[in-house]
Structures are given as C-alpha cells and as structure tokens.
Design a binder for these strands. Structure first.
Length: 793
DNA sequence: AGCACGCCGACT
DNA sequence: GTCGGCGTGCTC
C-alpha cells in the first residue's frame, strides 16, 4: 500500500503530496501523523490518502514511523485543509499544523555520532551526543567537518515528538478482599503502615484500583506501596491522566426564556433536528440573553447525540464565561484557549478527539476541534476581528465554521449585539436567517450615554486627558463607592518624542513608526517589531535638551488619575501589565472583588466583562481608531464604543457612559451614543456603497515586500499589470501604493487591493501570481495574498 | 525549508 | 592543494 503524505516543509516547491510505501508492520490511516525520510533528512508528515498503486517512476521510500495510536486528523479535517489551502493561499502543511495542538509540532535535531574507533576515543564524543545546532566554537566546527569528510563521523537526523502524556501510578489488587483480611491478621502489629494498607484493601476493596495520589492521601507511603508490589499484593500500572485546566463547578438549570428567546431557539432547534446547514445571525443587544439561547440550543444537539462547538473571542474567554457553559454541561465540556499550558491543551484536545467531550468552548483555532458528529456551531461576538488570523495561514473562523456546518449538515449561529456589516448584509439578502432579540432579559434600561466634545471642554488635570465633566462624574462614583471603567486604546506613556528645537521625531530603526515612550521601564518601544532603546535625555539629532513626549497612552492617564484622585485605587490593564501568565485573570478578579475603584485599560477591557458595581464607563478618546485608513474604521469604532458602553450598569444600579471625542458629529460616534445599531448599519452601508467597499465588493490584498524598496515597487507594478490584463470591470484594482506603515521589520511593503464582485478565475490567477513570485524570491521578494483582509494598512 | 553539489577566489 | 563563499536544483 502507498501513502500520500504532506511533509512538514513549508515551502512552495514542497506544497504537494509525496508518496511513500507503507511497510506491512505499520498501520496507516488517513490523518495519521508519520515520520518519513525526505532527502537526506527525516521529517514529520501527515497522511492525506492511502492507495494501492503509484505513478511515481522513481523508487518509493518506506514510511518510518506512525507517531500516534489514533490518527490526529479526521478525514473531515484532511479534506478541509485542502479546500482551505486553495481558498486562502496558504501551504497545506501550515494549515494542518494550525489544526493541531502545538505539542504535535515536531522537534528536529541533528546529532553527530562517531563512525570509527579513533573517533570514539575523542573527547568530543565523551559526554552527551553532540547537537550540531548548538555547535559554536570555530575549533570544534572545523574538527566536525574534518571527521565528516573522512567518514569518521556521521549525522543522525532525529524527529522528536513533544507530545507527552501525563502518567500516574495506579495499583490493582492481585488478591481477594478475604485474602487481604487474612494477611492483615497475620502481619505483625508494628508494621503499622502495611497494616493500614491491608485494612484499606480489605475494607474498601470495591474502590480499587486506586491511584498513588489517593493512597498517599490515606497516609500510605510510596515505600509501603513498593513493598506491597514486591510481595505480590498489588500490581502497579502506569495510567494516563488528563491534565484538566478547569475545576468542576456547581451545575445550573436552564432559565426561563422570554418570547423572543424562545422563538429564536425554536427556529434553530428545528434545523438541528432537521440536519439543515443553515447560518443564523442572532442580533441581540447587550443583556438580551443570547448566552441562554446558545446553552439551550447546545442541550438540544446533545439530546440528539450530537456534539456542539462554541467559539468565543480569546479576550472574552474569561473564567466567567467558561464556568457558565461548564455549569450546564459539566464534564462533557472541553476548553481550548491560549491561557492553557501546552499539556492541558493537548489533553483537552485528546478528550475531544476520543469523543469524551461533546461540547467544545474555545477561541479562534478551536474551530478545528476534531469533533466528528457536530450538531451545532456557535460563534459569539461574531463581529470580532480576532476571528480572522492576521498571520499565515490567514483563515477566518467564520468561513471555516460555514464549511464545517455544510459538511455536518448542522446549523451555525453567529451572535452579536453589533453584527459585522458583512454578516448583517447577508442576513438582509436572506443568505443568513436573521433572528433578533430586542428586549433586555432583565429589562434594565440602557445606560445613559453622554458625548464630551474635547474641542470645547475644560480639562481637569495637567495632561489634558481628562475633562472636567468626566472628572466630576468619576469623583461622584468614588464617593458612592461604586466602580469606574476607563478605556484608552493606546498603551505606553506617550506615543512619540518630538524635539522642539529641530522637529526631530524618534523612529524605530526597523519600521516606519515613531517609538512609544514607556515610563515604567524607561524605554522607547516599537509596538510593531518590539525594538527598544533607552529614553533619550537630549535630542539624538541636534543634541538639544528641549525634547517633549507627546500623545497619550494608558501609563500617562494612570499618572493623571493618581494626581486627580489620590485616594482612589487604580488598576491598569494593557499588554504591558498582562504579559505574565495569569495576570489578566488576577487584575479582573481583584477588580471584581472591589479591591480597586478604577480599571483603566485598552480594548481588552471592552468585551464581555460583567461587574455589577461598575456604574460609570469613560472613553478617554473615542477617535483613536476613527481616522485609520481602513474602510472599516467607522465600524470598528462603533463596535468598540457600543461594547464598552454595555459594561455600565449591568445590575440594578443605573449606569452612565461618558465618551470624550473631537468628532461628536461623526455618525459612528453619535449613533454609538444612541446605541442604534440598525441606523448605523443603514448609514454605513451607504458609505460602503459609495466607496465600492465590502460588503458590496469582495476584496483581496496582494502585498509585496523586500529589503530594497525599488524591488518591491517594481514587482508590485508587474503584478498590477498582470491583474489588469486579466480582470474586467466592475473589478477595481487599487495601487500599488506603499503600505500605511511602509517599512516594517526592515522590509518595505507595497500593496495592491483588488475589489471585485464576480471574477471566476481570480483565485486561479492569484495562485499563478504567487507561483511566479516564488521564482523571483531569490531577490528577497515576498508576495503575500490576503483574501478579505481585516486591515488594509 | 534545508541539504548537497558545483564552481570560483583566498588562504595554510 | 583545500577551505569556504553562495548560486542552483531536488526532495516520493
């Protein structure tokens, strides 16, 4: 038999199947993870087909090893990887690797082994095997080369599997309860440890086998267990134990639904039962009880013996959210997100693969969860940009979910208070079925939202970040012992350094961006490539002392708050304060327990948080994202403001929202004030229509990058000409133009945007362009294609 | 990608 | 002579 294998070499020329002969002693299935010889080396690969004969004219090599006892990929995922690779211009192997937990990525090592008696005696081979990757000393490198040339040493290529299972010792009784009782009586009284074990064996026989952990907690030492094993009382076996990221929680019961919720649920459940692959858009204001609809729909799928998958943005995958699902479905739930350790992730994933978890809750990549009997897929907060991966492979979880819903003939629910324009438009056209929840479940009033026009307002502090009305409102809440959330979409202290003498702005040496000043670490940082340097005291250009740090970041606002409200406790939450594992959780827990009065953060505080004592939400500057050169800047701003406004007054206390802005008349901002999604949708659709933007047009972004700016530009123009030759109106080709950040990590970027309605051969043409680009890659050029980009910058 | 082969210039 | 630079071609 012959296996078709996709090898773990992410390159254009290797992005196809390679065939291998399957030795008789190996059991290979579609989806098996294998190790194969590839040229001189060995690499990991995935079997995508098994067949009887091959057209290959050369000599087929043998598969070396099947890594896992159960193929990690299902036939569905193998098929999906092929379709997706074509759709998003990614290597198939990159997609296969993103489908699996990180520990299933192989580790490759090259070690040096002696090949002659003389070499064996050398001190080089005295210790551990020589790893050629960490060979640094020039003297040794030379020696190794000589040995290899003379054939006195050879290289061994290793493929290591990082996936490790946690094993625990479990003790099985070898005798009967009566036997143990008898031995107990015969054992001398001074052997109290052994007697304790025997007593437990006799008295609690039915509970065996017991794990070492259980027995130790009974006060039985491992030495005693060793004795028991040697006396043939017990047998020790290694048993796999799942590393569980969550603790059991108290169960919850389904809540009563209002009529809107009930109607939505019954519509979805009809298609769960009927096995219809229908996409629903569940549009429901904050607090309208979408989650309860999800949970009851999941119950319906489970009742039919089918599994359910629920995607949540990483940021709102808080313990609160996970607990809700667990409370309803208990041990059947598996959780997949980035806060898990590698081991926990692997074990949760295996529980799913083995059919031991029927409900999966996870972030973007969980859309590939190996559930093989899906009855329902849910994407909560479907408008979230994070569902699209912004590096390769650039897949959108929504598109993958639609593919899977078709494969499994099951419904897909997209839920949001502020649906993406694309989804809302599809619902309008009837492609998706629109379900609306207009009432808040607990019928609280929506919070009052005020706009503060920064052009005509007095500032309270010395930094001109917080206006007097906002400061007064904060003061009032502090006096009432209520809590405040403040949003500022920019971290750091000041976002650029300007010299007042010569006008010099300190920029990143690798990127076309100003460096942000971080006061706590006294560094100037590039938020794109991570470059850092010390904060200058004099202008690096003219050596003048008159340097200023302008712009506002969370650190500066925190200082100003401390100055205005010296008695208040302030928590800051941004990438800088949440870098360490668990710190995100710690800050939220601390704020939830009312250990602080003000939570100041970037957009990570806007989503999903539910703190009943928060009665004021302030937005320091609503305009930070408004004028970005992206067609969806207004949509992003409206979403962010609406979401953050939803954080105020979620319990019985009345909430208030204050938005500081220089653009109170901009529709994205005043419609967010009114929290009128439908009006925003109508207005934004007009704007998109006028600008020939999505959802009226599809978009593809072709970006060309190179170390040398001319090379990038030249190639970009060449691609443009090719596109122009093949594509016809109404297709619009924009650019090439330097990207908004024209240089990033020392690479110059040029971009072409293609907007089209129907171009049957576009996909094929773009693949052709990608192939040609591969040929010019020698000159250091990279061509990347992003279908439906989230950012065109 | 990464490894080898092959061809040229500069050293022990 | 040989070491090492990188251009080119291949991996079932």
């Amino acid at each position: 038999m012959i296996a078709e294998v996709i090898v773990d070499v992410a390159a254009h020329q290797t992005d196809r199947v390679f065939e291998y002969h399957i030795p008789d002693d190996l059991e290979v299935e579609i989806g098996s993870r294998v190790v194969v010889p590839f040229g001189r080396r060995k690499v990991q690969g995935f079997v995508v087909a098994v067949k009887k004969s091959s057209d290959f004219t050369g000599q087929l090599k043998d598969l070396l090893l099947v890594v896992d006892e159960m193929p990690p990929l299902t036939p569905e995922l193998v098929a999906l990887s092929s379709d997706l690779a074509r759709q998003i211009f990614a290597y198939r192997i990159s997609i296969l690797k993103t489908m699996l937990p990180g520990v299933m990525r192989a580790n490759y090592r090259k070690i040096l082994l002696p090949n002659s008696p003389r070499a064996e005696q050398m001190p080089l081979f005295a210790g551990d095997p020589v790893d050629l990757a960490n060979l640094e000393e020039p003297r040794l490198i030379k020696l190794v080369k000589q040995l290899l040339n003379k054939g006195e040493a050879r290289i061994e290529y290793l493929v290591e599997n990082k996936a490790k299972k946690k094993l625990v010792s479990v003790y099985y009784p070898l005798l009967s309860a009566a036997d143990y009782q008898e031995i107990f009586l015969e054992t001398r009284k001074t052997a109290s440890q052994q007697r304790k074990l025997l007593a437990d064996l006799a008295g609690d026989f039915a509970a065996y086998p017991k794990s070492r952990e259980e027995l130790t907690s009974l006060g039985i030492s491992s030495a005693t267990l060793k004795t028991a094993v040697s006396k043939k009382w017990l047998q020790e076996k290694d048993q796999e134990k799942y590393r569980r990221p969550t603790k059991p929680v108290a169960p919850s019961r389904p809540l009563d639904l209002n009529d809107e919720q009930a109607a939505a649920l019954s519509r979805v459940s009809q298609d769960i039962k009927g096995r219809v692959s229908q996409t629903f858009l569940l549009e429901g204001v904050t607090g309208s009880g979408k989650t309860e609809v999800y949970l009851q729909a999941i119950s319906q799928a489970l009742a039919l013996g089918r599994a359910a998958l629920m995607l949540v943005p990483e940021i709102s995958l808080t313990p609160q959210m996970v607990k809700q699902v667990q409370a309803r479905f208990g041990q059947q739930v598996a959780v997949l997100h980035s806060a898990l350790s590698e081991g926990e992730r692997y074990d949760e994933w295996r529980r799913i693969r083995r059919g031991q978890a029927q409900v999966v809750v996870g972030a973007r990549s969980a859309v590939f969860a190996p559930l093989d009997n899906l009855g329902l897929i849910i994407i909560d907060e479907e408008h979230e940009g994070s569902y699209k991966q912004d590096n390769n492979p650039r897949y959108h979880a929504r598109d993958v979910a639609i593919w899977r819903s078709r494969y499994h003939h099951c419904p897909l629910i997209l839920g949001s208070a502020t649906p993406s324009l694309a989804s809302r438009a599809r619902a309008q056209k009837g492609v998706y079925q629109l379900l609306r929840l207009k009432k808040r479940a607990k019928s609280q009033p929506l919070p009052r939202v005020d706009l503060l026009d920064l052009k005509h307002v007095q500032f309270a502090g010395s930094q001109f970040d917080i206006s007097c009305p906002l400061a007064e409102a904060i003061q009032k809440r502090l006096e009432k012992k209520e809590q405040v959330i403040l949003l500022l979409n920019r971290r750091g202290f000041a976002n650029f350094m300007l010299c007042r003498n010569c006008g010099f702005v300190l920029k990143c040496p690798n990127c076309d961006l100003s460096l942000t000043m971080h006061k706590d670490t006294c560094t100037m940082q590039c938020h794109y490539c991570g470059y850092q340097e010390a904060v200058p005291e004099i202008c690096p250009n003219c050596r003048d002392r008159q340097i200023r740090f302008l712009g506002t970041g969370t650190q500066k606002v925190q200082e100003e708050l401390a100055e205005l409200f010296p008695q208040a406790k302030i928590l800051r939450m941004d990438v800088d304060t949440t870098r360490r594992k668990g710190s995100y959780d710690k800050i939220l827990t601390s704020f939830g327990q009312e250990e602080a009065d003000i939570l100041l953060g970037t957009q990570m505080i806007a989503k999903g948080l539910d703190f009943p004592n928060v009665t004021l939400v302030g937005v320091i500057n609503a305009d930070t994202g408004l004028w970005l050169p992206d067609y969806n800047a207004s949509e992003r701003t409206f979403e962010l403001l609406t979401q953050v406004a939803g954080r105020a007054g979620r319990a019985d206390k009345e909430g208030q929202v204050m938005i500081q802005t220089y653009n109170p008349d901009h529709y994205a901002i005043h419609l967010a004030q009114k929290q009128d999604y439908e009006l925003f949708y109508a207005k934004e659709m007009q704007v998109r229509h006028a600008g020939d933007y999505p959802p009226y047009f599809y978009t593809v972004l072709v970006s060309v990058s190179a170390k040398n700016e001319q090379n990038a530009a030249r190639e970009a123009f060449k691609i443009k000409r090719q596109l122009q030759r093949e594509l016809r109106a109404p297709t619009i080709i924009l650019g090439p133009a330097p990207a908004t950040i024209s240089r990033l990590k020392s690479q110059y970027y040029y971009q072409i945007l293609v907007k089209y309605k129907r171009e049957k051969h576009l996909n094929e043409l773009l693949h052709q362009i990608q192939d040609q680009a591969q040929e010019v890659k020698k000159y250091g050029l990279t061509v990347e294609i992003d279908s439906e980009p989230e950012r065109i910058m």
